[in-house]
Design a protein around this nucleic acid. Structure first.
Ligand SMILES: [Zn+2]
Ligand SMILES: [Zn+2]
Ligand SMILES: [Zn+2]
Ligand SMILES: [Zn+2]
Lengths: 127, 127
DNA sequence: TAACACTATGTAATAATATAACATATATTA
DNA sequence: TAATATATGTTATATTATTACATAGTGTTA
């Protein structure tokens, strides 16, 4: 587990303490006072953080959330629930689900160790 | 099953005959000769086509693919495999998988009838 | 038919998301 | 030290998507 660089740490801290997924430019606005001035600086840190599993990208929302699955063993096998009203996003950690998906074989008998699953519905509060 | 409007039909035809997912602006360039001149015209048709399940959006690629699951009964429950080398995308239609996911319950006992799953790996040719 | 609601279209402008290209600096390792 | 890899800074630009406003067509029903 490598240490984070300065920019990576700043951006990870912001995402980690956010109760909701953050978008790249929201992140940019919030770290400008810390000296990160350009989009590319944000995107580079995001890329790295995604790569090492500290954060995940919510593809349908173009937003980023910190991993809370004990610094994701499954950086490449992610599942989320997304509330269609309040946009609350929760990372799903289910041994059953990840086992099922990791063992799933398509028609050609092909298995996939990497996947991203996004469930949509209404959260407890919005139901 | 409603009929498609003129723009919707033009854009669906293009996507339907494409062997690969198409991006919005690629679509735009390809339909300009048919009188569709602005991005919004494309996005509006895409939105509608997604809504009625004739096409699906590949979220991780910002691209659109025609549904070939007999005009998708499962417009809201989609699964794809994506080759990380050649970018070939295939819609997965597996009764087992859709049943498993439709019945999946999260920690709160919540079920989700809508989801999008993207598997990543190497296709037959690229392996 | 006329009124209404609904869906679709046309057009211009702009917002939001992401990358290319190039220069420099810092950390790691041999 | 030298070599290598990783990270940063900066400017410009590419790509993806929406807002706002005006108009036209389609279907329903009073
Ligand atoms: Zn995680
Ligand atoms: Zn909610
Ligand atoms: Zn389909
Ligand atoms: Zn391939």
């Amino acid at each position: 587990m490598q240490n984070l660089s300065k920019n990576q740490q700043i951006i990870f801290d912001l995402i980690d303490k956010s109760p909701e997924p953050l978008k790249a430019y929201t992140i940019l606005y919030n770290v400008q006072k810390k000296g990160i001035k350009a989009p590319l600086q944000v995107y580079r840190a995001l890329d790295k953080l995604v790569q090492i599993g500290k954060i995940h990208k919510i593809e349908s929302r173009n937003a980023f959330i910190a991993c809370h699955n004990s610094s994701c063993q499954v950086a490449k096998a992610t599942a989320f629930s997304i509330c269609e009203i309040c946009e609350k996003v929760t990372e799903i950690s289910s041994a059953g689900l990840s086992k099922y998906l990791a063992n799933f074989k398509d028609k050609d008998g092909m298995k996939y160790s990497k996947y991203n699953l996004e469930f949509f519905g209404l959260c407890k509060k919005c139901r």
